[in-house]
């Protein structure tokens, strides 16, 4: 499902910056089978978000090879890369909701982009909004929601189209214990239904509570896989 082979990611800074390049990832290799679950842990700046971006095709590696869904990512056309992204649900650390859309439309967006029928969209969106406990706030815009509510909308958007791969960057960061518990139940339920899951977190209690293989990053290197 996901295979990294000696992957490097280097960011080039603008001229005049103190360091011209920053190596976010250094020779990272691992494999996650279809239907697998991996925690991604490491201190801030270890490269977790960079690794996630490579998985959901928001960055290209500077060196190395990434296979997604059995396809060499570097050889995917722009059109097919877009179609591939539709099979990946992403929960961003900063939510990344569209401010001009209400909660319902934010959640419905991936399905609209995939040109699903409005009836199917309505059914899926209603169900997932109920799951995250925001069925009463479907008409609210992001700026009318709390941080936790925005995060739940972002989670709902990531899973509404039943993705084959779910990538979540600190998904419980703004949630209380109850909501975090509900979210993990949802994620594990999706995983049991066959969705491959990668969750980046600082929360080691959460990792301990839901035991699963872990990828550990430090200074851009993979220091733990198991």
């Amino acid at each position: 499902m996901i295979r990294f082979e000696d992957v490097w990611l280097t960011y080039r800074h603008a001229a005049g910056a103190s360091a011209p390049v920053a190596e976010a990832l250094r020779g990272v290799s691992f494999e996650i089978p279809e239907g697998g679950f991996r925690w991604l842990t490491g201190p801030s700046g270890a490269g977790k978000t960079s690794l996630m971006k490579l998985i959901y095709l928001a960055e290209h590696p500077t060196h190395g090879r990434i296979d997604l869904f059995g396809t060499h990512a570097a050889r995917i056309s722009r059109h097919n890369a877009a179609l591939l992204r539709r099979r990946i649900g992403v929960v961003y650390q900063d939510f990344r909701l569209l401010p001009q859309l209400n909660a319902y439309d934010n959640v419905a967006l991936p399905m609209r982009l995939a040109r699903r029928s409005e009836a199917q969209i309505h059914a899926n969106v209603s169900e997932i909004l109920r799951w995250v406990g925001l069925e009463a706030k479907l008409a609210a815009r992001p700026d009318e929601l709390s941080g936790g509510e925005q995060q739940r909308i972002a989670i709902a958007r990531a899973v509404v189209a039943r993705p084959k791969l779910l990538v979540a960057d600190e998904p419980t960061g703004n949630l209380d214990d109850d909501q975090a518990e509900r979210l993990m139940l949802l994620i594990t339920a999706l995983n049991k239904l066959g969705t491959t899951v990668v969750v980046a977190t600082h929360n080691l209690h959460l990792v301990a509570r839901y035991p699963a293989p872990r990828l550990g990053l430090e200074a851009g290197r993979l220091v733990y896989d198991g």
Binding site: L98, Q100, L101, N102, Y104, D105, A108, L109
Partner: peptide
């Protein structure tokens, strides 16, 4: 309530602004 969603979503890029 639900009808509001599809109506607003027509301009999800916010191009009117």
């Amino acid at each position: 309530m639900m009808a509001e969603g599809p109506r607003r979503a027509g301009d999800f890029l916010g191009l009117r602004a």
